[in-house]
Design a binder for these strands. Structure first.
Lengths: 228, 228
DNA sequence: CCTCATATTTAGGCAAACCTAAACTATGGT
DNA sequence: ACCATAGTTTAGGTTTGCCTAAATATGAGG
């Protein structure tokens, strides 16, 4: 186990970089400097600099001009942050009156400040949930994560009925809109119509039809192969 | 209202300095550079540097070689942190299984990360407590604080029975010891014996006698004028 | 296969906060 | 009234993490 990984040695910034890189490389595909910069709202030059330091620390693998991948140590650290973030979200929603459109930014700050002890206490009073309020899986404290297969609502064929599984969106206003039309993890929806060329999708949610744009239909993900 | 005071403009360090200075100047008596350095575990030179920056920002008044006092803006910011710290402690003890010897360091990190919203939610589910688990008063969100008069146990005359009001100690091992002999806010104790020259004090707590050193008897504070 | 736009990295700077070492005050004891 | 010492401040240096501007690599289209 790398010395740099020992709990508190990672700074806030480093934790944010690792999390961002994890989110950008689903199955280990390298993440581009510019993607990281965009996600963290930093200049590409700053990212280059940090990436260099992090690969010297053994947290990631960097092939210049090509991209960045997490090492096992880096991945472990990223999943630790993801666990914290998602458990904090779940806790705030369950016990402190937060809704899914307001909880992200609070968790974003708290995840760097809580101790492992506190995280596990929250997990415990929550009954060790496996998903957060957006339906995203919560990594275990051992660093395992169960990514459930899911397809974007945008790709569900017309006529199919599916269950919403996760909503991968951080922006409060968009989340609030999605919630307002009843799209939440666990809800059953039927795709009534699907226009070609990134066109809008018409879904029936709890009996009522809604037309949503392709971009939103991209972040709403459904159980993979249902067809009730 | 000073621009620098506007919520998130203060860094973690600055927040810690202000809190330390508040704690060091009970009734506006200036705090010495070396005292601040000791409390924050920094070199006196570093404190000098920061003090200069903070007085330029209007958060404190510095008379070189004499000492430091908070301005109204500085005091407001310090009380805001104190409120956060103490409410977080109260919350963690009430809902997440913390005890008073473990809660301080967790709160020390969280107080910089929570939003005003979260602090007020915690206050609300706690029923707006006025004191924290150590008996320290919690400032209101308007920045008022009600310091109850109290005397150190070390100064209570032999024979008197008093109620413990607060325990002003941050070190876990000392707190744990104090708790182990039953000294907690709200408990009634009788001073059985008091030796002169900073000597030990013998107190009867819930029927059992305990001898404690002067230093500990200094941090345990009692309701001022009781004499049952 | 060369060119050029785009992506990336390097170079050089800055601010926050810390440090050590050196210079400077303030003051209590004679 | 002096002077040694304890307490403070200044000077100069380091690290982290960001920035802009300039240099360089990649790779797609002609």
């Amino acid at each position: 186990m790398n010395a740099a990984l020992q709990q508190d040695t990672l700074t806030r910034s480093v934790e944010d970089y690792l999390k961002a890189i994890y989110r950008l490389s689903p199955q280990g595909r390298p993440a581009a400097t510019s993607e990281i910069a965009q996600r963290l709202e930093l200049s590409p030059a700053s990212v280059s600099g940090m990436v260099k330091r992090l690969s010297e620390q053994g947290l990631l693998e960097h092939i210049p001009y090509k991209g960045v991948q997490l090492t096992p140590d880096g991945r472990r650290a990223a999943l630790r942050m993801l666990r914290r973030h998602r458990l904090i979200e779940a806790y705030l929603v369950a016990f402190l009156g937060y809704t899914w459109d307001t909880v992200h930014e609070e968790a974003e700050r708290l995840e760097h400040a809580v101790s492992d002890t506190l995280v596990e206490r929250m997990a415990s009073v929550l009954g060790h949930p496996t998903v957060d309020p957006h339906g995203d899986p919560i990594p275990t404290s051992e660093g395992d994560i169960l990514e459930l297969a899911s397809t974007p609502l945008a790709e569900v064929p017309a006529g199919a009925t599916v269950e919403i599984r996760q909503v991968e969106e951080d922006q409060p206003d968009r989340l609030r809109y999605i919630a307002s039309i009843g799209l939440r993890p666990g809800v059953q929806v039927t795709v009534v119509d699907r226009q070609p060329f990134q066109g809008p999708i018409t879904v029936s949610v709890e009996g009522r039809p809604h037309v949503i744009g392709h971009e939103l239909a991209q972040v709403v993900r459904c159980a993979a192969d249902e067809q009730a």
